[in-house]
């Protein structure tokens, strides 16, 4: 079917052309913009980022919170996925729909719900002050705890999806063999099930890190002005100060951070596969 191949190739090139025009060209334009200052090539905007204490603090916060929530999300997500994978087929579907439902809901609405929960007079603070009377509740909203909670809630469905898929792929015969040969349940988990679910954990870690590091809406709504992430700084530079090149440079630094961390994770993934 040589003739068909030609049509398929043309179709592919058309789609690629669309993407080059509307994805690659804008990215490259922004990239060049961040390297020009007053008509000359300069690294001014990048040196600003890596020397100013304000920018460095935000960079550090973005990385720290992203690693933290990825860790927390993996533990919670693994527990939930393991629990679901132990259920009967029919039960599994119901649990999955329940646990993954937030993915189909608007993120803005979800974060609005968290704003109401975490606020000074919100439910969580009420419970705290009821548990320890006399003390004023801790204002959770507009702290980085609130941002961390929001991001965990945002990433959890993606983590569960990946880990659950890898747990489903574990061959039941291997688990039965291990139990039959006299290993305890706990040891079977650590020696058989856990190592076989590693690919799912790596996939979940990459998607969770990528989502957390580049999140924009969560720090904006739950973090307040003192807990901004790199993405919010880039927005402020452009929209509030009109400093396009600085915003472009910040967002490119963010892109490189995400790409570097994802490559490190995939490096470990490949090593674990060989081992």
């Amino acid at each position: 079917m040589i003739k068909n191949k030609k049509y398929y190739t043309i179709a592919g090139w058309l789609a690629a052309l669309y993407f080059i025009l509307l994805f690659l060209v804008p990215l490259l334009r922004m990239f060049t913009l961040s390297f020009f200052s007053e008509g000359k090539i300069s690294f001014e905007y990048y040196t600003t980022i890596f020397t100013s204490p304000v920018y460095l603090r935000v960079l550090y916060r973005t990385l720290y919170v992203s690693f933290l929530v990825t860790g927390i999300g993996l533990v919670i997500g693994y527990a939930i996925s393991y629990f679901i994978s132990q259920k009967s087929e029919k039960q599994q579907k119901k649990w999955l729909i329940l646990v993954l439902s937030p993915m189909f809901m608007s993120l803005t609405i979800r974060l609005f719900g968290w704003m109401m929960l975490l606020g000074q007079e919100g439910l969580i603070n009420r419970v705290f002050s009821w548990l320890s009377p006399g003390k004023d509740g801790i204002p959770l909203l507009f702290s980085y705890t609130a941002v961390a909670i929001g991001i965990v809630h945002y990433c959890l469905p993606f983590i569960i999806l990946n880990i659950y898929a890898s747990l489903k792929r574990v061959d039941n015969a291997l688990i039965e063999a291990s139990l039959m040969l006299g290993e305890s349940k706990v040891k079977t988990f650590w020696k058989v099930i856990f190592p076989l679910s590693l690919p799912g954990i790596f996939a979940a870690a990459s998607i969770s890190f990528a989502l957390s590091a580049s999140t924009f809406l969560v720090p904006l709504m739950l973090g307040g002005p003192n807990n901004l992430f790199v993405s919010n700084l880039a927005y402020n530079a452009i929209v509030n100060m009109g400093d396009y090149p600085q915003g472009a440079a910040l967002s490119i630094v963010l892109l490189f951070i995400v790409v570097i961390v994802l490559s490190i994770i995939s490096f470990f993934e490949r090593r674990s596969r060989i081992a």
């Binding site: 509307l22 804008p26 334009r29 580049s214 880039a234 915003g247 967002s251 963010l254 892109l255």
Partner: peptide
């Protein structure tokens, strides 16, 4: 390479994409 290029918008942070569209 082309296939990952088409998956690009899932990897490039949305802020980066947003700024590039604004500039473009």
């Amino acid at each position: 390479v082309i296939e990952s290029f088409f998956m690009g918008p899932l990897i490039v942070p949305l802020v980066t994409v947003g700024i590039s569209f604004l500039v473009f």
